[in-house]
Each structure stands twice: as C-alpha cells, then as structure tokens.
Write a protein that binds this DNA or RNA. Structure first.
Lengths: 201, 201
DNA sequence: GTCTATACCGCGATAGAC
DNA sequence: GTCTATCGCGGTATAGAC
C-alpha cells in the first residue's frame, strides 16, 4: 500500500531485507517479550545495530510501530466482517462473523496477549478500530440485529471481549490452535444462542 | 491495617483530611480521566498543591498508588470468594461466586475500565491477584469443578474476562447499575450453564 | 513525621550534518 | 538512510528544612 516508487524493490537482489521489514519483525519479537511499554526505541535500535534516530526515520512515533505490528490482524478481521455482511440471512452473518472472529483471535493469539494488556497496542488498535473503517461498530452492527435490547448489547460485548481476552490468556498457551478454536467457537455459540450450524458449509 | 501507633488519629479534629487520603482520591480521579500512564506524578502533585517528592513520601513508587487504588475492589472480591468457598454444594458455590463477581464488577465499573486498558493498574492488580492470596487461582478453582476439561477452562476464562471487560466498557455507561447487573448475571448463567437459581435466597 | 529542593538517568522525540 | 547532538519530561532518589 502507498506503493509509489517501489517496483524493483520487491524480493530484491541478495540477502538484505529492507530495514523497515526487519524493524517490524524485531519490534514484534521484543514487544511480545517485554510488552510495548517495556520495549524502548533504544532496545529496538540496538537489536538492529542502528541508532534511535534511524528508527525514527521509518516511523514518526513509537505508536506507529505498534499500529504497524497490529495491522495484519486487523486487516483479516476487516475481511471477515465484509464477508459476513455479504450474507443474506442474519443468522448466517452472525455464524460467519463468530467463526471468523474466533479464527483471527486464535491465529494471532500471541499478539492478542499484548493487545489486551498493553495500552501502547491497545490505543493503536482502538485508533484503527474506530478509525476510517470503525471495525467495532461494524462488528457490533452485525452481531446485534435490527433493534437490539440492552441484553443483546451486553451479550455481544461479553462475547467479543471474552473470546478475545481468553484467547490471548496465558492459561490457553498449552492448548493447540485447533482445540482452542473449537472451544471458543462453542462458547460463542452458546452465548449468542446459535446452537449449531449445518454440518456442511 | 498495619495500624500500629495510630489511636487518637482516627476521625481527627477539623477539616484537613490527611494527605494520603486526599492523594488517593485525587489519583483515582486523574487515573480515570487520563489513564494511569497518562497521569504523571507531577499532575497528582500539582492537583494537591505539593511537590512530586511529597507524593513520593507517601508511596514508594507509582505502582503503589495504582495498587492502593485497586485494593478496595480486590478486597471485596476476596470476601466473595471466601463466602462462595464456604458453601457446601458446588452448584451453590458457583452461583454465589457469579453473583458476587458481577456485583463487584458493576459497583467498580469505572475502575474496571482502567484495569482492563492500562497496564499500570493491570500489573498492580495481577500482583495482588497472584500475590499472597492468589485470587485468580481460587476463583478458577471454584468455577471449575474437581477435574475440568479444556472446554470448562475456556468457558470459565471467557466468562470472567468477558464479564469484567464488558462491565467496564464505554458502551455500558448508559445502563444503570441494576440493569447492567441483571444482564451480566444472565449472560454468566448461560455461559456456565446455571440456568436459574431458586427464587428465594 | 511531613514536606521542599535538587539532582539523576532513561525515555520519546526533533534538528541538522554527512 | 543513517548519525550526532540535544531537548523536555517521566519516574526515582537523597539531603535536609520544619
């Protein structure tokens, strides 16, 4: 995105990945190890063998790094929401959204652990979440039907918050992806009263 | 606690509340307005008309202020857990715990919004949560029966995280305490499969 | 026992040279 | 694209006034 002058860069010559990419990978690693707060620009710079100022050339602020790290997961969520919105029947929308949401949560659960305990990421995510696309409104809009009562709203919030947070919880690290996904899905269905989808897609 | 030499101090003379108490009240207000991270010791000191060092006299570190702010809620939770543990039947334990937890969440929901989005408080709470008393283990111990399977563990986590987070969510601020409590309780029951307690206590 | 003055160092961020 | 230098502010720490 914002491609511009790129062109020949992609999969360029020999070894050297461009700094921005290396930077993001390094930042993600350090973030998951020490949290966003606990990771200083100095640590990132040192790990890359450059100075803080060099890091600042690629990102205007630390929060931008956090946003960039969170972006892939948010983009996937965006796709899921679009797919869900495209379904005709409301029940099918909810089913697809739930399954897709759980899937994104499970596949990005290490990131999730960060999201939920670090305001650095949390704020970055919220910015994107309520930004241009406002993922949260769209999510809730699908989950809640045409005219939801207070109980529906509470239920939807508990479901999303619970699944998201539980997915990233330390106690879940022992479970393999598939097991976790199955259980989260089941819990979500019970919450949202969608007892069980038809056996074949 | 750690009373010691006190004695005559309690409910002392005229106007001046002791600084420590004013400090905590001020800190709580600023924390809820700007978050823990967003509140500097300088801001607290200014609001009280003292210097940073004075604040530092009462609390060795910023994290201690956060802990002190969170303490009342955690103590209430502690009581609820004890009460629940004292019940004879497991079903009654879960019912009491759920109702008590929801109640604490609702009454401290402003604080909750902080807990869940600010690692300052989050860490303080975790310290207490896993400290001496290890509230979390005891909570989970009651919620999960004798030998829980993976599904039970996931469910319990979703329930606690979901109720806690949803209770503090901005979207819930419009609901009055009683309505919120009723809906959270109902959602919790559905999750934990405790359909409905007997009509009279 | 309560507070002020002052200082330290690491942090995120900026400006400008190469 | 990277570096050196520097800034202001944050939490922390100590010495000492009252």
């Amino acid at each position: 995105m914002t491609a511009g002058t790129a062109g020949t860069v992609e999969a360029g010559a020999g070894g050297t990945e461009d700094t921005r990419t290396r930077l993001l990978a390094t930042a993600l690693r350090l973030f998951t190890e020490h949290g966003v707060e606990g990771t200083s620009l100095q640590m990132i710079a040192d790990a890359l063998g450059v100075t803080k100022a060099a890091v600042y050339y690629h990102f205007k602020a630390k929060s931008e790094i956090a946003e960039a790290v969170a972006e892939p997961a948010l983009r996937e969520l965006d796709v899921v929401i679009d797919e869900a919105a495209a379904k005709r029947r409301h029940g099918a929308q909810v089913d697809h959204l739930l399954a897709g949401f759980v899937d994104v949560v499970v596949r990005h659960r290490r990131l999730l652990a960060l999201f939920s305990s670090d305001p650095g990421i949390a704020r970055a995510v919220e910015a994107s979440l309520h930004g241009e696309q406002d993922l949260e409104s769209r999510l809730m809009g699908i989950l809640l039907g045409p005219d939801p009562d207070a109980g529906d709203v509470v239920t939807a919030h508990v479901a999303l918050a619970g699944i998201g947070l539980a997915g990233g919880a330390p106690a879940m690290t022992e479970l393999d992806d598939d097991t976790l996904r199955r259980h989260l899905l089941e819990v979500g269905r019970r919450l949202l009263r969608r007892p069980r989808p038809p056996r074949l897609a």
